[in-house]
């Protein structure tokens, strides 16, 4: 049994996961980052992306949108806007959100609106991707 560390994933609307974890892989702003027990203290940001963590030798996947992580040798905390398991993702809703965002991107918008739409599109795409990848 591999050494474990305490992992907390907290989304704005619920506590997503709280418990021991052997291995955590996150998408940070500059690429993938693997975290094992005893990792050096670290703070970084997480854009919308994928997250996987290993519990009892099994990988678990989740779709995460915007947050940050604080890593300490014996524990890690992820705080994010939202976090969902692949099977929880509402594909229809994500698909609708994607179409809405794409529609909006075709129209003239202010820069701020443009970024917001792009972020929304990102989230929708991420959800679709993860649910297609891990949940069929």
């Amino acid at each position: 049994m591999a050494k474990t560390f305490h992992l907390e994933i907290i989304a704005t609307d619920r506590v997503f996961y709280q418990g021991e974890c052997e291995h955590l892989v996150i998408t940070a702003i500059d690429g993938l980052l693997g975290i094992l027990a005893g990792h050096e203290p670290l703070v970084t940001c997480l854009p919308t992306g994928e997250l996987k963590y290993m519990v009892d030798g099994k990988w678990k996947y989740a779709a995460i949108s915007e947050g940050f992580i604080q890593v300490m040798p014996d524990s890690s905390i992820i705080l994010a806007d939202s976090c969902e398991l692949p099977e929880e993702i509402d594909i229809k809703r994500a698909e609708e959100a994607r179409q809405r965002a794409e529609e909006k991107l075709r129209q003239k918008q202010s820069i701020r609106e443009y970024y917001q739409t792009q972020a929304a599109l990102n989230r929708a795409m991420n959800r679709l991707k993860i649910s297609q990848k891990h949940f069929k």
Binding site: A28, I29, D30, L33, E40, P41, L42, V43, T44, C45, F68, Q70, V71
Partner: peptide, 14 residues
Amino acid sequence: ASFVPSPEKVMEYL
């Protein structure tokens, strides 16, 4: 703690 990629970047986001 170390900040990846840099403290400024992290704060800008945080």
